[in-house]
Amino acid sequence: MKNPDAGRTRTGGSRFGRQAEAERNDVRVLYAARAVFAEQGADAPVSAIAALAGVGIGTLYRRYGSKEQLLQRLCAIGIARTIAELRAALAAEGTGWEALAHYMAAAVEARAGAFAALAGTFSLPDDVTIANEEAKALAEQVLRRGHDDGTVREDVTTLDITHVIEMFSRYPRRTEEDDNARRRMLALTLDGLRSPHTGLPGPRPDWADYQRVWDEPKERP
């Protein structure tokens, strides 16, 4: 006897199969976009993202109508992950330096600072702006823990931490040697955050100057 649900099962399976494939493509696109924008900047061609993701340009544009939409989506995902890592650092046992080092290593691995070079080239959605303020406050708490227990040098600021993450987020990751060099340099940098150490050169960085870069759109050629 013929199964009356057979047709629906095949149709449903096909639909769910297409949905699963679309989700896999989206993950590949987002991963590729983060890498391409991190290393090539705002002028990176969308074709380079599609090529790295292994999808067609049409597939990419069906999901994201413009480069700006793609950047906004990446920022939303990035700040959500940053907040999660900061909360995990605050909940973890150990010294303040260990919590800070764990957070920074996770942020660099996720390329959380990949879009600093793109500041002012696209608009940030309001929810991302609000989330950025939450992340800043959490980062202050993580750093304060290290200052309070004396394991992180007193002259380090949250903006110093942000700059370190941004620099390492743009480090190329084309080969195993690239990855090894990045990890070694990050380990050296993290060790430099420990207390005590000699003082840092120059004035303390200012959040107002940093935020101004995002608030004032750049002139595009």
Score class of each variant (00 low, 15 high):
A33H: 10
L159Q: 13
F115E: 05
P221C: 03
S47G: 07
D155Q: 03
N3R: 14
D43K: 12
H163G: 12
L71Q: 00
L86M: 06
G58N: 10
Q72C: 07
M104H: 04
A88Y: 07
E85A: 11
D149C: 09
D149M: 09
D43Y: 11
S169K: 04
D209V: 12
V152G: 01
A181W: 11
L159N: 08
A32R: 15
T129I: 13
K67A: 02
L124I: 03
R144Y: 05
G199Q: 04
R10P: 03
G199Y: 07
D178Y: 10
E219D: 15
H102G: 02
L60D: 13
T162F: 13
R10I: 13
I161H: 06
A22C: 02
L74G: 05
L74V: 03
E109T: 02
N3L: 10
V213K: 14
K2E: 06
M185G: 02
L188Q: 14
D126K: 05
G54Q: 01
L86D: 00
E134W: 06
T9E: 15
G12I: 13
L190P: 01
G199H: 06
S123P: 02
A92C: 08
H197I: 00
D148W: 00
I161R: 03
A101I: 02
G202A: 09
F37K: 09
N132K: 04
I77T: 12
A51T: 09
Y103L: 02
L124N: 04
T121R: 08
R15H: 04
D149S: 05
L86K: 01
Q69S: 06
L188W: 14
A89W: 01
V156E: 00
A84S: 13
D126E: 08
A105Q: 15
A42K: 08
V108T: 03
A116R: 13
R24I: 07
A33L: 06
G56F: 00
L74F: 14
R28I: 00
A181Y: 06
L190T: 01
A105P: 02
P125V: 10
E68H: 04
K2Y: 06
L74N: 13
A105W: 03
R204K: 08
G7W: 08
G94E: 09
D148S: 10
R18K: 15
Y31Q: 15
T175C: 04
A91K: 07
R10F: 15
L124G: 07
T11L: 15
E219I: 11
D209N: 12
A101H: 03
L60Y: 14
V213W: 07
G58Q: 06
R144L: 07
A88V: 11
D191G: 08
M167H: 06
R204T: 13
F168V: 01
G13H: 09
I49Q: 06
Y61C: 05
L74T: 07
E177W: 07
T151S: 15
T157A: 03
R220K: 05
G54C: 01
A35W: 12
L138S: 06
E93C: 02
V27L: 14
S47I: 09
A112N: 04
Y210K: 12
V55L: 11
P203E: 04
E133Q: 14
V152T: 02
L143C: 00
A92N: 01
A131Y: 01
R34N: 09
N132A: 11
D160F: 05
R87L: 13
H197F: 04
S169M: 03
Q72S: 12
R111P: 11
